[in-house]
């Protein structure tokens, strides 16, 4: 069995050249991101062509569409549906590259400005939920690793329960307890931070369960790692060791999970925005799916992919700062 040397496992402090070290990977990250966007655009193009029936009809609401002949003709012209498939494909790529997702038949508006106006609310929700999930997961992991095996099992059980809570159900329970029972928070979105509390908690708790599982594993590893032993030998307090060394070590895989967590939060936003009546991408998507508003659905998919790429490039950079080994 191979074992990395002690120095391999020790996260070193960010060096002075940290920012410079990020330059090249960042460039590559952006390049990779463009590739992914292209692939997602291609995938959506192919999948939409798989919708049975007239593609013009598909753009205007699918099988139940009540589109007029004029509207169908306009859609054919707008998307070049009478052109060869390759031309259609290139047209679509060109439009997406210029952030032109076409017109929503159901909302009677340009898709891109609509989605951009909905993006902020969803991102705010996702970022806050991610932050809260981290706090909860770390607290849970730290608390439970103190209790040895029993503590770890208990912590793990809590996390599995949290991860298994369906958000739509959790949201209703939170509303019953904190809105109707205690009267602390409003049950629907209202302006101001107080309206964000329940939606954020709903999104964060199950995610904290997932993160907690990952963090505990690496925290246990870290607490038994040689660098922690040597820190103990130097007489550092257990609290200091946990906060200074172990958490940073343990956070690395969790930070790397950010891209995945972001996807999880976007999925969750569909449910949470519906329950708490918050405007946002998720609710827009659900409405669009219900009426088969294909341009909006494609727009949400592309915007989510774009946001995902930004998040991963950033978290990649954060990982490098936390754990210089990954720059090797």
């Amino acid at each position: 069995m191979t074992s990395p040397s002690a120095s391999d496992l020790r996260p070193t402090a960010p060096r002075a050249g940290a920012v410079g070290r990020l330059g090249r990977p960042l460039l590559i990250g952006v390049g990779g991101g463009v590739f992914v966007l292209w692939a997602v655009a291609t995938l959506t193009f192919v999948l939409v062509r798989l919708i049975p029936g007239d593609p013009a009809q598909a753009v205007l609401g699918g099988p139940g569409s009540q589109a007029s002949a004029e509207a169908l003709a306009a859609a054919r012209a707008e998307y070049g549906l009478d052109q060869p498939i390759l031309v259609q494909y290139l047209m679509q790529l060109g439009r997406i590259a210029t952030l032109d997702f076409g017109t929503s038949y159901s909302l009677r508006t340009e898709v891109a400005p609509l989605l951009l106006s909905q993006l902020g609310g969803t991102l705010l929700l996702a970022v806050l939920a991610l932050a809260l999930a981290w706090v909860v997961a770390l607290a849970l992991a730290l608390a439970s690793t103190r209790g040895g095996r029993v503590g770890a099992s208990l912590g793990s059980a809590l996390e599995v329960v949290a991860a298994g809570l369906p958000q739509f159900w959790l949201a209703t329970v939170l509303i019953l307890v904190f809105s109707l029972g205690l009267g602390w928070f409003p049950p629907i979105s209202v302006p101001g931070p107080i309206g964000l509390v329940l939606p954020v908690v709903t999104l964060a708790l199950p995610l904290a369960g997932f993160l907690g599982q990952t963090i505990r594993e690496s925290l246990l590893d870290a607490l038994e790692a040689p660098f922690v032993l040597s820190a103990r030998a130097r007489g550092e307090g257990e609290r200091g060791i946990r906060l200074r060394h172990a958490i940073r070590h343990a956070a690395v895989p969790g930070v790397a999970l950010s891209g995945w967590a972001f996807g999880y939060l976007i999925s969750g936003a569909v449910v949470v925005e519906t329950i708490f009546a918050r405007p946002g991408l998720g609710r827009t998507l659900l409405n669009a799916v219900t009426v088969r508003d294909v341009p909006v659905v494609i727009g949400v998919v592309m915007i989510t992919a774009l946001a995902y790429i930004v998040v991963t490039v950033v978290s990649d950079a954060a990982t490098r700062l936390l754990d210089p080994r990954s720059a090797a």
Binding site: G32, V36, L47, L50, S267, V289
Partner: peptide
């Protein structure tokens, strides 16, 4: 990356639009 960029529920809703 492409699969990651299409989170679960989003992908499910997208597939619902298709099939």
């Amino acid at each position: 990356e492409v699969l990651f960029a299409l989170p679960g529920l989003l992908l499910a809703l997208f597939l619902i639009v298709i099939v």
